[in-house]
Amino acid sequence: MGKYLLVFCEIGDRGAVAPASLEVLGLARELSGPMKLEVAAAAPREISGEVAECGPSCIYIAPSSAPTGYFPEWYASFLGEAARLTEPEAVLFAHTPLGQDLAPRLAQKLGTGLVTDAAGIRAEGKKLLVTKAVYGGVALATYSLNSTPQIITLRSRLGKIPPKEPGRSTETVEVKLPEGGGKPHWELVNRIEEKSAEIKLEEAQVVVSGGRGLGGPEGFELLRELAGLIGAAVGASRPPCDSGWIPSSQQVGITGKVISPQVYIAVAISGASQHLSGMGDAKKIVAINKDPDANIFKTADYGAVGDCRQILPAMIETLEKIKSEL
C-alpha cells in the first residue's frame, strides 16, 4: 500500500515553479487528508527550494539541473525513478504541455493507466474519481483507475496555490537516473518565438473571442479595438483559425486553449460543444450573435441579438465615452 501522492512540479515561465504545478500541490494537500496519504513532490533541482516552502512532506530532486531544449526522456526517466522510490498511490501533473507529454510516457513506463485533462477530482478511499469533458464537450465522463499509481493530469484552477512557509525544512532525496536515462534524442535546432504583443489568453482576466460570423480578418480588427479598450486578450472559435483569420494559437476550446477568465465575451460564436468546454468555466459570459436561437445564449449571463458589425462599433463608442468621463 502506497503512502504518497506524488506531484510533479515543473519550471514555469520565469524560472520559478509553474503556478499550475503549485495549484496541483495545493489540490494534493486537500486530497491527502481524506486519503490518509502524504504529499511528495518531484521537482527539478532549480525549484526545489520554492517547492519545499509549499508544504510537501518530502521532495525528490534530480541529480542535475533540468536540461534545456526538448528532453522528455530525461524527465520521464527522473519521474520513473521518483515513482519507484515513493511507490505512490497516484502521480499528479498539471495539464500543461509538459505534463501532457510526460504523463503518458510515465504511465507506459510504469505499466499503469492514466486520465488526462481532469476538470474535477475527488477521492473515494485511495481511489481517485476524475471528471473530464469527452466527445468534444457533449458529455462529462467520470473515470476511475484500477492500477497504481493512478496517473492524472489536472486542468488549471482546480486547486489553490498553498501559502508559502519560508524556511520550512523538508526531507530532500536526490534521485539517481538509471543508466542511459539521461540521453537526449532530439537536438534543438532552433526555437522560434511567435509571441504576439497582445495579452496571453491563459492569463487574461477578460477575453474577447470571435467566430465565423465575424466574416473575415477585418472583423477581428474590430475585436482588437474592443479588447484594447477593456484590457482583454483576443481569442477565437475554431472556424476563424481554420480559415487563417487569426493564428490558431488563439483558439479557445477543447482543440485549442482551455481558459477560465473572469469575463468571456463571445462575438458571433454559435456555441459548439467543443468551444463551450474550453471557456464554460468563465465567471461571466457575454454573447453577441445575430441568431437569437444560437446555443451560446443558453450558457451566457448577458446577451445581445444582432449583427456584430453594427453592435461592436456602438459598444466601443459607448465604452470610450464612459472611460473619458471617469
Binding site: G113, V115, L140, T142, S144, N146, S277, D301
Partner: peptide, 20 residues
Amino acid sequence: RSVELTRLEAPKRERHCQVI
C-alpha cells in the same frame, strides 16, 4: 483494463441570460 468509465452525463452549463 486500467481505466474504468464509472459515469457519463450531460454537462450542466445552463445560465440565465439577460438579453439587452
